[in-house]
Amino acid sequence: MEVRTLQSFLAVAEEKSFTRAAARCHVAQPAISQQIRALERELGEALFERDSRTVRLTAAGEALMPHARAVSAAVAAARAEFAARSGLLTGHLSLGAADGVDHSSLPAQLGAFHRLYPGVGVNLVDGTSASLVPQVRQGSLDAAFVAVPPGGLDSDFGHRVLIRDEIVAIVASDQPQAQQAALSLAQLSGTPLITYGPDSGLRPHLIAAFADAGVPFRPAYATNHVALQVELVAAGVGIALAAGADRSPASDPRVTVVPLTLRIPYAKALIWRAGPHTSAPLRALLHLSHPTAQTTDA
């Protein structure tokens, strides 16, 4: 049982896709599939249930997960130890951060990175997905936390999904809609909508969902700050459509979070240029054993 095979197993389990796992591991998809089949033969049990649309862990796969994570963590720790002993890992890491990064596992990963590599300076650049993706492509940023477009990322990018979530409605608690179990997009068409601006990576997901439902998408107010969306809802402006991963509305008694009948899922990921451009500090960050990505899955 090889370390690389266990890392491929982890990639498939966490990405829930052989294609995304192959991109993450920088190998062709057949190579990932071959490694998993060999591991299943070695262990004598199937590790994944596969159909045309989904990849799920079997009971055997669930049993293997903690062992695979422990091995991956041990390898990362050994690399970190010898990088620190040799004093080779210095320099700078430039990371872009779109809205919602504080609800992802990236801050915890950066904390672990700082403890292991205190000689690396990290520069965090705020921005929207639309502004950060070109900076990664051009090389002015090593990586960025951005929203994954509805059609997926270009093959030029490697990526690691850190959040899987969906859009929810935020309604004033004294309004009738706040008492409903879920709201349809048609029910929102007669109400002023408050949601993300055109530069947000979540805007294309909203546009596509409204188009699929045959409902006009006409936001009355646009802001990428969920806290401001909540204040506008509380002030009686309308209903907001915001990321469910942002937990602040749930703790505000003035508003109520209501699911949508037509789910609008999205993912946010750390992306970087694929190929030989990856800097040593970024490779070290990507090698860290990271927490399970925050999810809001069906």
Results as ranks from 00 to 15, higher is better:
A31G: 03
A227L: 11
V101L: 02
D126S: 15
E14M: 04
A38E: 05
T296D: 14
A28R: 14
G44E: 11
A240G: 12
A222D: 14
V125S: 02
E40R: 03
L43I: 06
V168G: 00
A242Y: 07
V12R: 03
R203V: 08
A222S: 15
I271D: 02
S279E: 04
I167D: 00
A182I: 12
A46N: 07
H287S: 14
T195N: 03
S105M: 07
V168F: 02
A83E: 12
E166Q: 15
G96A: 10
H277W: 08
Q180M: 14
Q229F: 04
A269K: 05
S248L: 09
G91N: 08
A70L: 13
H287M: 13
L106M: 05
G151I: 08
A28Y: 03
A60N: 03
A63N: 14
D199E: 09
H290Y: 04
T195V: 06
G44M: 12
V257Y: 09
A182H: 13
G197N: 10
G190Y: 06
R247L: 13
T54R: 15
R50T: 12
P150A: 12
A144K: 00
H205Y: 06
A298R: 13
E49M: 09
G119M: 13
A60H: 07
T295N: 12
G152P: 09
